[in-house]
Structures are given as structure tokens and as C-alpha cells.
Amino acid sequence: MSNKTDSNLYTILFAIAMVVVVGGLLAFTASALKPRINNNERLEKQQNILYAMGVNANDESSAIFVSTDEAPELFSKYITKQLVIQGKNVTEDKEAYLIDVKKEQTSAKAGNARRLPLFVGVKDGKTYYIAPIRGKGLWDAIWGYIALDKNMVVQGAYFDHKGETAGLGANIKQRFFMDDFIGEDLMNNGEFKGITVAKGNNDPKNIEKNDNEVDAIAGATITGDGVSAMLKSELKQYVSYFKTLK
């Protein structure tokens, strides 16, 4: 038996068969499940956007989305307009929330004008402008949705990540971190400044709202820096649009 499995021919045939079988199996699973997965991702985007503008099922301490069953209905109820900003052109697009921010970033690097989605939501008579953002953490991508008022003061924030360290960087999607952003001003004396995730700002309870800083997470320096950089580079591109709102 061992003679048979040791021969070169057998080894090569086995390897070929293995690749075909496993490759086929993976391709089959991926394509069979794709529609379901895409639908789940679409619902998640809706949940994220609603979360940022305060439409969520949060309890005292944890972040909880509205259910996937309710998401489409609530999304069309609360999100009144979806805009695509491209330079000075602002157009409405009902599917703007499906714009892939990662693809837009790549195409912008290649010199194309970037399409910036912005979602306008109204809740209890108050208008929210929600922007999707994307950047780099320590290990992989981080992204989020920031709800702003027309003066670019943060009204709500949602962050997520692909593979930040559990218990450290992964905590950017915890309430204690995300809620700190609420009320922070992205502007400083009329100039865009962003919000820095700062160590040693001596404000752990985050009472100071005009300092353009929130308290960092211990042990998550690089993820925190990634959040600062992402907020700065992404939201800066919306400034000219927000100036037209005044």
C-alpha cells in the first residue's frame, strides 16, 4: 500500500484530483450562497446607517441594531434622501448606500473624481447627514458611518472592523467608544480639524466636546490612530458640501 501512495505518478494525480474536488466544492458553495450573502450585507448596511442616526434597539450598555426584518421598512421611512456628491455635482440616487466605498477610494487614487455618498435622514424633526467612511486599522480594514448635523457636529457614530484584536482594537465597535463621538465637533473655528482618538487627553468621561479629541482605548493605539486618520481623510471631502448647507 505504501508503495502505491509513494509513487510520483500517484502523488501528482492525487494532487490534481484534490485541487479539482476542493476547488469545485468551494466555487459551488460560494456561488450558491452568494445571493443570500449579498442580501445580508445589504441589510447590514441599512442597519448600520440607521444605527448612526440613532434608530437602533440599544439597551443600557450594548449596541443593538434594529432587526433585519424591520430594517428595509425603517430605512425607507427615516432616510429621506440619498445623495451622491461628485465634485460640485450633487445628484440623488436611491441606491447610493450600495456604493462600494473601497472601490471609490481605489478609483480616486487612479485619478478619477470620487463619488461620495451621503444619506439624509430625518428623525423627530431633526435632520441627520450620514457619511460612510473607510480606513485601515492594525490588521485589516476598518469602516463606519458618521451622522452629522449641518454644522458637522457628530450626532452618532458606528464603527466596525474586519480583524482587529479581540478585547483591544475590536472595542471600537463598543458603545463606550462610539458614544464618545456624539457631540464632538469636526470643525474648529471654521476650519476642518477632524477628531483625534487621543491618549492622555485627561478627559476619560469625555465631557469636553470642543477639543476635537476623544479618549483612546488602552492597548489599541494603532487601531485608534486608524480611526483618527479615517475620520480626517474621509470626512474632509464632505466639507465643501456642508458649506453649501449654510
Binding site: 505504501s2 502523488t11 492525487f14
Partner: peptide, 11 residues
Amino acid sequence: NIIPSKIRIIV
């Protein structure tokens, strides 16, 4: 019994 020992780690 069918894995070729030379490439067993890859398998």
C-alpha cells in the same frame, strides 16, 4: 490510507 505521504501536510 490514500493520502500520498510526500504531500500529506499540504493535503
